[in-house]
Design a protein around this nucleic acid. Structure first.
Lengths: 205, 205
DNA sequence: ATGACTGTACCGTCTGGTCGGTATAGTAAT
DNA sequence: ATTACTATACCGACCAGACGGTACAGTCAT
């Protein structure tokens, strides 16, 4: 198997473990078993546990950046474009993004907070971009912060709004982010009939 | 030393470790040393590591509830009172609450996500109260989510806005939460021409 | 003396990491 | 085609230390 493909498999296994069992269970053995390989095999691709966690952070960062830039490119209106893209990438309509999510961040914070530094730097950069987005600064920040809050609620299972309510919140945030279409994009509550109850995934363990 | 006082010291030590070194370093030995006692002494007060983490969660919950209720009692205007109190308790003006913070939540999520269930239940209850707060639901939710986002930024060190900018954001959130005073506190954008660059704002409340 | 509390030695288990070895594929000289 | 050699990918036994937890012997105010 090709080297990058194998690395991806291992990273995916690590993410699955964090999501399913919690950061505390992210051990080399567990990752190896989850990926269907051996600890030796795992350590061949990542020379240490720290290297694995670092790679998880990087992967998460790359995923997020890609989503962000795609959303930017798809938005014709320059004013508030960045803020809307951030909202879209952080808190998508359909609930928690099934992909990398924040497992890397969690893993980093648990073992060594310094490993999350690349993320912190990026974040600081994003904040600066947001200041030049043509929106009242407080409004843009509120949209970003609310997106973060929603993301956290998704991640931790803290009564994250779903379905109809989530749609309304996101529409209102889009409005704050200067989207003229947003107000019209979501019809008033009366028109919208009860949606599918948005994949209720209460994890038990 | 009295029993509850000692317990508090031990919990405080545990919190310090989580904040400083990350959840992964929250071991019985480390907590005992940090608190200036021995593992035996620690285990006398908390029969197991799990009991310690549970107590951390409970402490955090109690702290937060107390702050919340105090803010509620101090607010004469019923409309949006709850939302404003939540904002105040979650994201105080002066930056991250120096007290328990969320270390308990982090510790729980790392070792066993189920331990955070009491928090989840409370949270669900709060959300219900928010729905009966007399505010447009989406607005109330956005305030709460932004508060959560700010709290997270404080906790993880993710470019959390400080000083002047933080003040403006909180004022705008108060406005969204229906506070009539908030709108007056911060003049509209037109009036606010190029402001003094964050002249270290000492928190008044 | 009693009971609340603390210190210390220890146990079994788990964890990150090392290390010697194996299997396979490719290359190139004969 | 055979042989010899090399590089890559992977395996799994093993180790030293850390971990949660137990047992028990103090200590000290009442």
């Amino acid at each position: 198997m090709s080297r990058p493909a194998r690395r991806d498999q291992l990273l995916a296994a690590a993410e699955r473990i964090v999501r399913r069992d919690g950061v505390g269970h992210l051990t080399l053995d567990a990752v190896a078993v989850e990926a269907g390989t051996s600890k030796g095999g795992l350590l061949y691709h990542f020379i240490s546990r720290e290297a694995l966690v670092t790679a998880m952070v990087e992967r998460h960062l790359a995923d997020f950046s890609a989503t962000l830039e795609a959303a930017m490119a798809a938005d014709p209106e320059p004013r508030g474009r960045w803020t809307r893209a951030y909202l879209h990438a952080t808190a998508p309509l359909g609930g928690p993004s099934d992909s990398a999510a924040a497992t890397g961040l969690l893993a980093a914070m648990a073992s060594n907070p310094v490993l999350a530094d690349p993320l912190r730097e990026r974040y600081a950069g994003w904040r600066q971009q947001m200041a030049r987005d043509g929106l009242p600064e407080a409004d843009a920040m509120i949209v970003a912060l609310a997106a973060d809050g929603l993301w956290m609620a998704d991640l931790l299972g803290f009564a994250a709004p779903t379905g109809d309510q989530r749609g309304q919140i996101l529409a209102r945030l889009m409005e704050l982010a200067g989207s003229p279409a947003a107000a019209a994009a979501v019809p008033p509550p009366e028109t919208r009939r009860a949606e599918a109850p948005a994949a209720d995934r209460r994890h038990s363990s």
